[in-house]
Design a protein around this nucleic acid. Structure first.
Lengths: 236, 236
DNA sequence: TAGTGGTCTAGACCACCCA
DNA sequence: GGGTGGTCTAGACCACTAT
């Protein structure tokens, strides 16, 4: 474990356990250096990480402060494939509809940088949150990278399996959001009426080396579609 | 202008001008250090910035590579209040429906950390993209911070005015996404039928010192709701 | 003007990828 | 094993905030 990750974890834990509110002041860099016996750059790296995660914000000439989102019960759009509902208790289950190996469509081949005659794993499942339909998910995995999948793996967290069992490292993803109306099939899977609103989230996941390995289309039940994103400046 | 920002800008420009594709290899850190006559840390900082912006990705032991999104014509969800449509030509206009000073509702006061008897600027406008309705926007600005607004400012880029004319620095924002059906009023403003899908984006913008100054509710025309986000690991 | 975070340097060493 | 990015150090100096 790297020092700056270690320290970031401890600070995060400290904030959680003491239930610090938005705007609470944290110790200054000088103190943190002494407390953890590391250099200033390491603390800076630590704080950068916490800032990226939306846990703190830093103000030059003033200090380091806790950042908290105002609303509870929203799903973080950028965490593991769209989950990790903050604090709140919830039960996530899923039902597998299809799981097979097939040839990619042109669209899928294009996204995954594959030839049309290579193989992909296709997974179609419904996910439930506290017993209600959350989303209909269709995923395509490059079989050359994700060499094996079965029903058991797919019914649990696929990403956990990919990182732990296969030892692959997920790097970055491109996420596309579209809003439209449910077609008949989607509506029946989600238990909604045809033409109800839907949020379609298409994600393309890459390994750290830049290889795309998973293209997913997730259609959300609009009644459960409450997402949040913590954005940093960068763009202003 | 800071060195690492300067260099990042030049590298970004270089990528744009040469239309480098996803996966193109950039010079190694050593070369960049020599080329720009700076230390390794500065180049590292530069590359971190470009990575955060989704312009490159780095692979340990291998090199630095160009990252590009696969699709055109999507709106970046995390840039200035939701715009900056990539490359594509488009014309953004807006029509002001209301602009006044008023007392905040409880919801608004809560988000902006204000008392109910303080003043907010209220702006309601429709935004058009290439002549079609893009969204209906309602914004509340803390008048103690955003001291003055008029129709002219509001019909242009409000954020440009805030940063340039008022000299304020925007720090971070919390973004909440919800999907629902249009009510009668929204439908008529957007020129859609009642009960059509809508994407509601509620954003809370803070200054660099953590003060919230703008709470906005933006209802998007679902036919124009094509957003993308470039996400980095952090969460895997 | 004291305190605090941000930038930058020069250099050592480590972890990972690839031929 | 050679090349490449990532971490970490110690220290100098700068820019902004608060009082």
């Amino acid at each position: 474990m790297l020092k700056y990750q270690q320290i970031a974890g401890e600070i995060e834990k400290y904030i959680e356990e003491n239930e610090l509110k938005q705007g609470s002041k944290l110790p200054v860099i000088e103190s943190l250096m002494k407390q953890y016996r590391v250099s200033k750059s390491t603390i800076t790296k630590t704080l950068e990480l916490l800032e990226k995660k939306g846990i703190i914000f830093q103000v030059r000439g003033s200090g380091i402060f806790v950042r908290r989102q105002k609303r509870k019960g929203y799903i973080s759009l950028l965490s593991n494939q769209g989950f990790k509902k903050d604090l709140e208790d919830y039960i996530l289950t899923s039902k597998i509809i299809e799981l097979d190996v097939r040839k990619p469509s042109e669209e899928v081949a294009l996204h995954l940088n594959m030839d049309l005659n290579e193989d992909v794993y296709y997974v179609k499942r419904i996910r439930y949150i506290n017993g209600q339909t959350l989303c209909l998910e269709e995923s395509y995995y490059n079989k050359a990278i994700i060499t094996y999948l079965n029903k058991e793996i797919v019914s649990e967290s696929i990403f956990h399996y990919i990182t732990e069992a296969l030892g692959l490292k997920v790097g970055f993803s491109d996420v596309y959001l579209l809003v439209d109306k449910l077609n008949e099939e989607e509506a029946s899977y989600l238990g909604l009426e045809k033409n109800s609103p839907k949020l379609l989230v298409e994600s393309l996941f890459h390994l750290t080396n830049g290889q795309p390995f998973d293209f997913s289309k997730v259609t959300y039940n609009y009644q459960q579609s409450q997402f949040f994103i913590q954005a940093n400046s960068l763009f202003f």
